[in-house]
């Protein structure tokens, strides 16, 4: 279970990007986070695995408080959180197998990693997962030879290699064409069910969010203003999520304060 309480993130001295945000993800549900650019979706996801340092608040994953961790403890916690990126973030010059195994870097020694001496069960697991998403025949191919959809499959397998307790996907389909995008969303949905894995997806495409997820969270300027079943995301809710400007939102804050 992921439990976020009163999370605040402020870059520099500016307006907070996340404003006392609270969110709980239970079980193996696929949750979409929607909202306009600048709403804080990416920041929220990156606070969870501490690629971004939260300013205050608490993030608990299956009983472990993540915000206070440092060094080795932080790395151990990160192993339990898989992440899929918008730009794939594969190492272009390495093979697909090396990219997939890089999801295990937190478990193996630097020496074993440099010498490419991966544990047998990791290699078996890699083939298993690559087979599952249809990229097993690319094991020895350099990552930059693959198409966008194939690259994102590598990204997904890399994250799953961590044997994570939760999967974060930061706009995983934004760099893909519509058809590939649907395939990847379908894959994430299926894998969540197969591996009993909660998945948190930032997404711009609300129609895909409605089809492929179990719950939709709408964010607007650092706050959650919608949290319900996908069917409940109607035009009125969409308008509330996507309307307004940061400026209008700030003046609203001022009125509330006075």
């Amino acid at each position: 279970m992921l439990k976020i309480t009163d999370l605040v993130k402020r870059y520099g001295g500016g307006e907070p990007v996340l404003k006392n945000l609270s969110l709980t993800i239970e079980g193996e549900s696929v949750v979409a986070i929607v909202g306009s650019s600048g709403a804080g979706k990416s920041t929220l996801l990156r606070c969870i695995n501490r690629l971004v340092e939260p300013t205050s608040g608490s993030i608990e994953l299956n009983g472990t408080e993540l915000t206070a961790l440092h060094g080795r403890k932080l790395r151990e916690a990160r192993r339990n959180i898989g992440m899929v990126f918008q730009g794939f973030n594969l190492v272009d010059r390495l093979t697909v197998m090396e990219n997939v195994q890089s999801g295990r870097l937190g478990y193996i020694s630097t020496w074993a990693a440099v010498m490419r001496r991966y544990p047998k069960q990791d290699i078996r697991r890699a083939y298993e997962l690559m087979e599952r998403v249809g990229i097993a025949h690319y094991a020895n191919t350099r990552a930059d030879q693959l198409s966008g959809g194939e690259r994102q499959r590598v990204g997904v397998v890399r994250a799953l290699m961590q044997d994570p307790e939760i999967l974060l996907a930061d706009e995983p389909t934004a760099s893909l064409d519509p058809k590939t995008s649907e395939q990847i969303m379908g894959l994430l949905q299926d894998l969540a069910g197969e591996l009993k894995l909660p998945v948190l997806i930032n997404i711009h495409n609300t129609s895909e969010a409605k089809i492929y997820t179990d719950r939709i969270v709408g964010m607007r300027y650092g706050r959650i203003i919608f949290d319900d079943l996908p069917d409940k995301l109607d035009q009125e809710a969409m308008d509330r999520i996507y309307s307004g400007s940061p400026h209008a939102d700030r003046s609203e804050d001022l009125r509330e304060a006075s």
Binding site: R79, M83, L90, D92, S102, R104, L105
Partner: peptide, 28 residues
């Protein structure tokens, strides 16, 4: 491209493993 470094960090990779996997191939 720092995204590759971020991906290693997100996987909990230690500092030198990150260097060897995310940076070396790019500068080779």
């Amino acid at each position: 491209d720092f995204g590759q470094v971020e991906a290693m960090r997100a996987a909990g990779a230690p500092y030198f493993s990150t260097l060897f996997y995310a940076i070396f191939p790019q500068i080779m």
